[in-house]
Design a protein around this nucleic acid. Structure first.
Lengths: 110, 110
DNA sequence: TCCATACATCACCACATAGCTATATAGCCA
DNA sequence: TGGCTATATAGCTATGTGGTGATGTATGGA
């Protein structure tokens, strides 16, 4: 799971890849559609997509002869969980809300 | 600010650096203390610390002839803010809580 | 069957990164 | 001043990453 964090953070460290995720947040897209905003070659985009897919941030589908990508949000939850340990450092009010929610939702309280 | 995200995500993509942050979450520490758990040379640790510092994730102090590091949580908030755009994809209940808090805090004065 | 489309993969290059050892620098103390 | 401690920097090597153009592969249609 350390490896997973490595892969996810590393994938997110590139602005092209973050832009691709932002596009996929609006819905699935083909490789050509994802490549369109960039001045990069198609193989370069395919490489970025491979990095994102291996990090678990996106998935590939198959429709006719295109391979549309979709966002895979679970991977982002992985880093949100990692960050939870640090949240208290930057946002105490967040902690208060979290406490409130735990109680409301009936989660256990430690 | 894209550069900042690059630097932060890139810094977090290394398990040694994440372990260093975890240690610093328990309080400030000298380079020697931070290096202790690892089988790496002292210069290797100093390099990692430089990466973390340039990403804004830690700060250096000065005490006698040591240079203790402390956590700098604001940088983590930067990526939390980036992730906020995606939170709806993995946790709808989180959204509900967030709405609740915005309202509650809208009537508070802190 | 043959061609076009959409994409993946290959082979290569330039540069960045992580590690090492050796050495430099800064503060403290005798 | 000289020496000890703590840490940074320099110089080197090996490997990883991001880009390219060329080529391979799968699907759909004429």
């Amino acid at each position: 799971m350390d490896d997973q964090l490595d892969a996810i953070f590393s994938a997110l460290s590139d602005p092209t890849r973050r832009a691709i995720l932002a596009r996929l947040a609006t819905g699935k897209a083909t490789v050509a559609e994802l490549a369109d905003p960039f001045e990069l070659s198609q193989p370069a985009i395919s490489k970025h997509l491979k990095v994102l897919e291996q990090a678990g941030l996106i998935r590939s589908g198959r429709e006719a002869n295109s391979r549309p990508r979709v966002l895979e949000p679970a991977a982002l939850k992985t880093i949100a969980d990692w960050m939870a340990d640090y949240r208290r450092f930057w946002d105490q009010s967040f902690d208060r809300l979290d406490d409130y929610l735990s109680k409301v939702q009936g989660y256990e309280n430690d």
